[in-house]
Amino acid sequence: MRNLKKKRRIQVIVLAAVALTASTALIGYGMRDGINFFRAPSQIVAEPPSPNEVFRIGGLVEEGSLMRGQGKTVRFSVTDGGATIPVVFTGVLPDLFDEKQGMVGTGSYVNGVFEATEILAKHDETYMPKEVVDALKEQGVYVEPGES
C-alpha cells in the first residue's frame, strides 16, 4: 500500500513536469512572432539586423524628410541625433504624425531602408515612448517638455 502511494505520487509529479514543459513550449511557439524588439537608429547603423527580422524603430521624424508619394506610400527619415534611417510606409499615417515629432514603427530593415508595416505617433504634446526618450537622451538631443 505504501509502495503504491509513492509510485502514484511520482507519476503525478512526472506528469505535472511534462505538462508544464509542454505548456511553456506552446506559449513560446505562439509568441515567436509577437515579440518585437526596439532599436534606435544608432543601434541599427551599428549592428544592422537581418532583412527577415521584425523589430521596432523609434526616434524623431527628421525635419524636411517627409515625402508623400503616389497613393498611400510615404517616405521619411527617423533620427535619434546620432544616426538617420530612411523609412518607407504604405498605409494611412496617424493624425498626429508630423516632422520633428516622436514615432515608433514596426517592420524590417531591407537594403538600408526600414520598411514599416505599422506607424505609431505620439498622442499628445508631452508623450513619447520611453524607449525613444532613452535613445534621444543617450544622444544628448532630448529636451524635457516645457523647456526651450
Rank of each mutant, 00 (worst) to 15 (best):
V74L: 10
M67S: 09
G71A: 11
I44H: 00
S42G: 08
Y29C: 02
S77F: 07
R68M: 10
V74Y: 07
T79K: 13
K72N: 14
S50A: 14
G91V: 14
F38N: 03
N52V: 08
G91K: 12
S65Y: 05
P51C: 04
E47N: 15
A40R: 01
G34M: 07
G28R: 06
E62K: 15
T73L: 15
R68E: 14
F55T: 01
R68P: 00
E63I: 09
N36D: 13
P41S: 15
G59K: 04
V88C: 03
G81I: 08
D33L: 04
G71H: 08
F76P: 04
L93G: 11
P41F: 10
V54T: 08
V87Q: 08
G58N: 12
G34N: 14
P41H: 15
K72V: 11
S42C: 08
V88F: 04
A83L: 03
P86D: 04
P51H: 00
V88A: 11
R68F: 11
P41W: 09
T84A: 13
F38S: 04
V61I: 14
G71K: 09
R75N: 15
Y29Q: 09
V78C: 10
G64V: 08
T90S: 15
L93T: 12
I85T: 01
F76Q: 09
A46T: 05
A40L: 05
F89M: 11
R39I: 03
V92Q: 10
R68D: 02
F89R: 07
E47F: 10
S65M: 08
N36P: 01
S50C: 02
E53L: 05
N36A: 14
L66A: 12
E62I: 06
F55S: 06
P41Q: 15
G59W: 08
R39N: 10
E53H: 00
G34L: 13
A40S: 15
L60N: 06
M31E: 05
E62Y: 08
T79I: 11
G34P: 00
T84F: 05
Q43P: 01
R75G: 03
Q43W: 02
A46P: 02
G34Q: 12
A40W: 02
G81A: 14
R39V: 02
N52D: 11
Q43V: 05
E53Y: 01
V74G: 09
F76W: 12
P51I: 02
T79N: 13
Q70S: 11
V54Y: 08
V74W: 14
S77I: 05
R56A: 15
